[in-house]
């Protein structure tokens, strides 16, 4: 199993397309950083809206490294599923397309092992992507934009809120958020892998996984009570943005944020469990179907 995983990672390492994902992330992050360095104030004005009529705020200081990372993740974590699907959706179907699946399966390795190894390799790839995001979006932003308290702009139901987290209370939230994002993206990996089992070229499963993510995300964001109550809880995409929960700081009765607190940990925990259940079911189903599949490619 370890040897197989090593082989799988070696193959990913050697493929040029692997680096597309890292290049894409780097490009997006750099563009964001450049744009905000040049004109972050406009964006801040958009977020602050009429709050500026009533309050003084040092907007330059508010556009700090922590804030930047949050903004970048906000956008990037909607795009990264595509990058994860690009690798995981290719896991089995790419081998089928290349013809190597035949060769692989004539080796003394069980199909379940192959699914698990493919899944683990996609998971490790996802972790590396997130690590790279942490390096570029977080650490590089901190280097460029400096350290200060972080403002979180949030729409909660019918209300909009601005939360301020003190700078000594942020890092652990990012680590937790990256951890959560790893689980959330692994669901995408598992979903792509699942589709990958049925296809003989990699375009199909990648497109299928990405389409599902897009469609479900769009549905998740429809503001109709019927959908919010009866559809949204069953869409895994509703839980993909759960990493933000770590930045929703708890407050005392007089609305003052409590350092080190999270507004609703139970909700994050439940989201994590739901995502983990998705992973287990999808990987299990992938193995089940793969074991029963006739290899005709």
């Amino acid at each position: 199993m370890v040897e197989l995983l090593r082989i799988e990672l070696f193959k990913i390492w050697k493929r040029p397309r692997t680096y597309i994902a890292f290049a894409a992330i780097t490009a997006i992050v750099l563009i964001f950083q450049f744009a905000f360095k040049a004109d972050g104030i406009s964006y801040m004005n958009l977020l602050l809206q009429n709050v500026q009529d009533s309050f003084e705020l040092n907007k330059i200081k508010a556009i700090n490294g922590y804030f930047m990372c949050y903004i970048i993740l906000n956008t990037l974590l909607i795009q990264v599923p595509i990058l994860v699907a690009l690798i995981a959706g290719d896991a089995i179907s790419g081998e089928a397309n290349m013809g190597t699946l035949r060769l692989m399966l004539t080796k003394p390795v069980s199909r379940t092992e192959i699914i698990l190894v493919k899944f683990l390799a996609s998971f490790i790839f996802t972790l590396l992507l997130l690590l790279w995001m942490a390096v570029t979006a977080l650490y590089l932003s901190l280097l460029i934009f400096g350290v200060d308290d972080m403002l979180i702009f949030r729409v909660k139901g019918d209300e909009s809120q601005i939360m301020q987290i003190t700078k000594d209370d942020i890092m652990w939230r990012y680590y937790a958020a990256f951890g959560y994002a790893a689980i959330a993206l692994t669901v995408i990996a598992a979903l792509s892998l699942f589709f990958s089992v049925f296809a003989e070229n990699s375009i199909g499963p990648i497109v299928a996984a990405v389409c599902i993510v897009i469609v479900c995300t769009v549905i998740s964001n429809i503001d109709v009570p019927v959908i919010e109550q009866h559809v949204k809880p069953y869409l895994f995409t509703s839980y993909l943005v759960g990493w933000k929960g770590f930045f929703y700081i708890g407050t005392d009765p007089s609305n003052i944020p409590i350092k080190g607190s999270i507004e609703n940990w139970a909700s994050i925990r439940n989201s994590l469990l739901i995502l983990l259940a998705h992973i287990v079911i999808l990987v299990g189903a992938s193995a089940w179907f793969f074991n029963r599949k006739d290899i005709l490619s």
């Binding site: 949030r154 909660k156 139901g157 019918d158 964001n221 919010e228 759960g242 933000k244 929703y248 994050i268």
Partner: peptide
């Protein structure tokens, strides 16, 4: 913002 709905909306 693409917010996370933690089921606690007012």
């Amino acid at each position: 913002t693409f917010d996370f709905d933690d089921g606690n909306s007012p």
